[in-house]
């Protein structure tokens, strides 16, 4: 696999993966390849297995069957910590206690911990990287504030800064814009687009909300009932009939200011 990784620039290769939680099968026979530098959008209804797919890549999921390689390494139990350090992960907005004693810059510093290893404390170089990332996401003015005092959109920006402070090769975003308002949603999408381009990342962006999908996706993976149902370019996939089938609900698309928007019809 290492050779394949070096030759083809394949950063993720999933072969016939099966994941199950209790009686439910979350992923059924899923195979997927992601190339270096790709921006892949993963869409589908709730419960389709999108999050499970992401957890498989950062080693948080439990594989029952099949094989997974990430950045040239086979993911097996106990060997995933090394991979996690190279993969940035942004989950959906967390419910943070406003009194939580941790500041914005300390949260971003958690990303550096991945590179530091045990017993080593963050030094000036780490602080510089954290400052740079906080600035990149536009949160410098709030760096000293307790994280719980920030708005949802601001907290997600900090989560992105934290993931970037890891200096990852890959960025996994799991519904990063869920429960954010319109403006925050748009800003996060633009930020993700920007960091993907400027930091040479391979990005996987999971969302159930078609309107929260950045328009830079090179490829769309459509998931339904634990399987990859279809995949292709955004142009090919974002069609009314395909999407209506995917979500089992009539969906209409409209063009607005050069961007496709999606409406629930009927």
């Amino acid at each position: 696999m290492r050779n394949l990784y070096e030759m083809n620039n394949t950063v993720v290769k999933i072969e016939n993966a099966v994941v199950s939680y209790r009686e439910d099968v979350a992923l059924r026979d899923v195979s997927l390849e992601v190339k270096r530098g790709e921006f892949v959008g993963v869409i589908g209804p709730n419960g389709a297995g999108k999050t499970t797919l992401i957890t498989l890549i950062n080693g948080l999921g439990k594989l029952v069957q099949g094989r997974v390689w990430v950045l040239g390494h086979s993911i097996r139990k106990g060997s995933v910590n090394g991979i996690r350090k190279r993969v940035g992960y942004v989950a959906q907005l967390q419910n943070i206690d406003p009194r939580m004693p941790i500041s914005v810059e300390e949260v971003a510093m958690i990303g550096r911990y991945s590179q530091l290893g045990t017993f080593r404390r963050p030094g000036k170089a780490d602080r510089d990287i954290v400052d740079e990332m906080i600035e990149l996401v536009g949160m410098s003015h709030l760096a000293k504030r307790p994280i719980g005092h920030l708005s949802g959109g601001e907290q997600q920006r900090v989560a992105i800064a934290r993931a970037l402070a890891q200096e990852p090769e890959m960025l996994l975003l799991d519904e990063p814009t869920a429960s954010l308002d319109w403006r925050a949603q748009k800003e996060i999408m633009e930020l993700v687009k920007k960091v993907h381009e400027t930091r040479n990342l391979t990005t996987l962006f999971v969302t159930h909300d078609l309107n929260a999908l950045p328009d830079t996706c090179d490829r769309l993976v459509l998931m339904k009932a634990g399987r990859i149902w279809q995949q292709g370019t955004a142009e090919e996939m974002l069609q009314q009939d395909i999407l209506s089938q995917l979500y089992d609900a009539p969906i209409t698309t409209r063009e607005h200011e050069g961007r496709k928007i999606f409406l629930k019809a009927g």
Partner: peptide, 13 residues
């Protein structure tokens, strides 16, 4: 203490 999943995701046991 901040977030168990995030700690796991950056490779902290």
């Amino acid at each position: 203490l901040f977030n168990r999943d995030i700690a796991l995701a950056v490779g902290i046991p």
